[in-house]
C-alpha cells in the first residue's frame, strides 16, 4: 500500500516539480521583462545592463545595428536614451515561454521637439541559470 502510494505520488511529485520549475522559469523571465520595462520607461540603463550578455544584438533608430560587448552595450543604450528621450514605454505583448521568451512594445519618445513612436522587440535566452538579453530592437 505504502509502496503503491509512494510510487504513484513520486511521478506526481516530479510532474509537480516540473510544473513548479516551469512556472518558476516563466516567472523569472516575466520578472526580467518587468524590470526591463521599468528601466526603459525611466531611461535607466543600469537597470537593464545586468541582463546584457557578452554579445548583445542592438538594432536602434539612430543607426546602431549589430553585436556589442557588454561594455559597449551600456554606453550605446545610454547614448540612445539621451537622444531619443523616453516619454512613455510599455510592453504590449510578452511571451515569457520556456525557450524563446520575447516581448514587444511601443516606445514613445521626444526627438528635437517632435514626439514619435518606435516599435520595440526584446528577446531573452537562458545562459546557465540566468536570463540574458539576446536582442534589443527599437525602430
Amino acid at each position: 500500500m505504502l509502496g503503491f502510494l509512494g510510487g504513484s505520488s513520486f511521478p506526481q511529485d516530479s510532474n509537480f516539480l516540473n510544473k513548479l520549475d516551469k512556472r518558476h522559469q516563466l516567472n523569472t523571465s516575466q520578472n526580467i521583462f518587468n524590470e526591463i520595462e521599468l528601466g526603459i520607461s525611466s531611461g535607466n540603463v543600469s537597470a537593464i545592463s545586468r541582463f546584457f550578455s557578452s554579445q548583445t544584438y542592438f538594432s536602434l533608430s539612430n543607426g546602431i545595428n549589430g553585436y556589442y560587448s557588454s561594455n559597449q552595450a551600456y554606453y550605446v543604450l545610454e547614448d540612445f536614451f539621451k537622444i531619443y528621450k523616453v516619454m512613455l514605454f510599455r510592453f504590449q505583448n510578452v511571451q515569457a515561454d520556456d525557450n524563446n521568451p520575447y516581448a514587444t512594445g511601443l516606445y514613445n519618445f521626444e526627438f528635437r521637439g517632435k514626439r514619435s513612436t518606435a516599435q520595440v522587440y526584446i528577446s531573452l535566452k537562458k545562459a546557465g541559470n540566468n536570463w540574458k538579453i539576446t536582442q534589443i530592437t527599437i525602430n
Binding site: 554579445q55 544584438y57 553585436y67 511571451q95 524563446n100 520575447y102 514587444t104 516599435q119 522587440y121 528577446s123 539576446t134 536582442q135 530592437t137 525602430n139
Partner: peptide, 25 residues
Amino acid sequence: LKTTALEINRPDENLLRFMVMETLS
C-alpha cells in the same frame, strides 16, 4: 565563430513576425 552561430539562431519566427508587422504598420 560564436557570433556567427548566434546570428544564425537569432532571427527566429518571433523576430520575423515583429519585423514584418512593423514594416506593414
